[in-house]
């Protein structure tokens, strides 16, 4: 039935908004009914804006090393002075380990870089990793899950054993192996994380395809001689869209956590600002200068909470059957 026909039929009973208006209505209903989901959405948007406008918001360059006047500066220090304080002869020294102040809102790290700027830029990596890995996991999960759930039989059997093995493999160990295969760039990290996520997304898609492909309209389509590909694209895909969206959104938080963990362990992407790496850098001086760890770790926790809230709420709204397990 075309959209126009549907609208015409409905008109007599109740005017149902279509298109953008309908989306807007659903969206606002979501915000009102799912307070936590709304909070999650707010947090996610907050960080997305942070990442997009990082150059404007960050105030300083992430790699800029700040210095300050040396309070102990002495012209022509004696050898004894130098032995006590090797920096005594320099008028300016690196402004390391500053506590939060007007100039450095979150303080500075061990080599005098602005923590606030680094926290702002760190959101970029986390978001790229979260969305990228989830996209890859869902894409391959969709292919494997639809094929497995639609054809069943031997294909399903073999594919699912493979998924079993990937799932039994401790995720972090698999990740540690995968990230070392290629150079530790952002792209390769995203790919490795995506692969780790494939089993879960395959399972979710497959179970939905199972129930969808045993519906009457799929049997009807088959009876009219529709090809497998056509059934998959025209009849199954549109009907599992909500599960795909849920799978996508629910994994993001986990990928962000994984990236932070491997960066913390020192095998994350190189040459980028990563929150996990910052927590690691902050550990050395955590007793006296906890700021680096506190803000970077707080960023991870808040962002992941946001995506978890959002994912949970989306799941409840879009597919209550999946929920609560």
């Amino acid at each position: 039935m075309s959209d126009a026909a549907a609208t015409a039929l409905d008109a007599g009973i109740r005017v149902r908004p279509t298109g953008l208006a309908r989306f807007r209505q659903n969206f606002f209903r979501f915000l009102v009914r799912k307070r936590l989901g709304a909070l999650g959405l707010f947090i996610a948007i907050f960080f997305i804006i942070m990442a997009l406008f990082a150059p404007v918001l960050s105030r300083y360059d992430t790699e800029r090393v700040f210095d300050s006047e040396n309070p102990n500066f002495k012209t022509n220090p004696s050898i004894v002075d130098l032995a006590r304080d090797p920096n005594i002869g320099s008028p300016r020294i690196v402004a390391s380990y500053e506590s939060p102040n007007a100039e450095h809102w979150f303080g500075t790290d061990s080599v005098g870089r602005d923590i606030y700027a680094r926290v702002i830029y760190g959101s970029q990596l986390s978001l790229i990793v979260g969305f990228g890995a989830s996209l890859i996991a869902v894409f391959f999960g969709l292919i494997l899950g639809v094929v497995s759930g639609y054809y069943r039989g031997w294909i399903d059997l073999i594919l699912q054993r493979f998924v079993d093995a990937l799932q039994a493999f401790p995720a972090l160990v698999l990740l540690l192996l995968l990230v070392q295969i290629a150079e530790p760039s952002v792209r390769n990290t995203v790919i490795a994380l995506g692969i780790v996520g494939v089993p879960v997304s395959t399972r979710l898609v497959r179970s939905t395809v199972f129930s969808v492909s045993s519906t009457d309209y799929v049997s009807a389509a088959r009876a009219t001689g529709a090809t497998d590909l056509r059934i998959m694209f025209r009849h199954i895909l549109p009907n599992i869209a909500s599960v795909v969206l849920i799978t996508f959104s629910i994994g993001i938080g986990a990928y962000i956590l994984f990236e932070a963990t491997i960066s913390f362990l020192g095998v994350g992407p190189r040459n980028v600002v990563s929150w996990g790496k910052m927590v690691q850098e902050g550990r050395a001086s955590i007793e006296s200068h906890p700021w680096l760890s506190v803000f970077a770790g707080g960023g991870i926790a808040l962002l992941v909470v946001g995506f978890n809230f959002l994912g949970d709420a989306l799941r409840d709204v879009l597919d209550p059957r999946l929920g609560r397990g």
């Binding site: 550990r283 906890p290 770790g297 991870i300 909470v305």
Partner: peptide, 22 residues
């Protein structure tokens, strides 16, 4: 509980160490 799920374990551990030391 949701916060505990989201906070990376290495972070909670680091913060705990700093609190114990402080």
């Amino acid at each position: 509980a949701i916060g505990a799920l989201a906070a990376p374990v290495f972070w909670t551990a680091s913060i705990a160490v700093s609190i114990v030391l402080a």
